[in-house]
Design a protein around this nucleic acid. Structure first.
Lengths: 118, 118
DNA sequence: CCTGAACCTGACGTCGACGTGAGGTGTGAG
DNA sequence: CTCACACCTCACGTCGACGTCAGGTTCAGG
């Protein structure tokens, strides 16, 4: 599969895929002409990378954790890192939940005021 | 209250407070010498700003919503905006929850493998 | 009056995940 | 062979929330 097709299938830009390779998050074979040629598994890989980015991990962290995420084998340091990141996400979810509640109260307030005005 | 004290109390940097003023998120009176002088309510205001930033809102969005968040009065457009932002947070929480579950599974996998090795 | 800490206004630097443009090459249909 | 389109490699630009440095001013205690 060439880069354009992988981009369309995964929903990320061509530029992003090249960036992933530059950051050693994603490998590619090359055709005789020097063009990237991806195996089908690359699609899952890209989606995994996107998930980890969406979770707020940096590319540096992702490149460290990708091996054990795909192989299931980890050093103690990697396990620590995994747990640290999960905890970070937990805290982030708590923050967002509080913020959401706060916005919810504002919305209720405003709605009540508007209804009262009608 | 001067800027240093507000910074210490709120936990944000002096630079951040000046930035908030530059973005019209926070006002200050000035002493005869030109130094910023904050009322006590500024503390809550700063914490509110931080909460909204933590929720992923941009300063542009915050400056638009701050009036109705503090006064409880909103135009229909502001109400729309509020609801849009709350929905964004909801989606974000879902994403993070999925990512957390994924990391959790990886951690289980790795832990199981390590225990099996012992 | 003096001094050191705290404050002031510019204005440039940072970081990460790409966007974008330049200038050139590979690929496949007709 | 040609043509269009997809692809290639630099390499600079972007955006947001500040960090940081320079060069000067204000404030409070002694």
């Amino acid at each position: 599969m060439r880069i354009g097709q992988l981009a369309r299938r995964s929903g990320v830009s061509v530029r992003a895929l090249r960036y992933y390779e530059e950051q050693r998050l994603l490998e590619s074979a090359r055709t005789s002409g020097g063009q990237r040629d991806y195996p089908d598994e690359a699609l899952e890989r890209v989606q995994l990378i996107q998930d980890l980015f969406a979770a707020g991990l940096s590319s540096r962290t992702v490149v460290e954790l990708l091996p054990c995420v795909s192989t299931g084998v980890a050093t103690p340091a990697m396990l620590d890192q995994l747990i640290t990141e999960r905890d970070r996400i937990t805290v982030r979810i708590q923050d967002l939940t509080r913020a959401k509640a706060k916005l919810g109260r504002v919305i209720e307030n405003v709605t009540a005021a508007n209804v009262a005005q009608d």
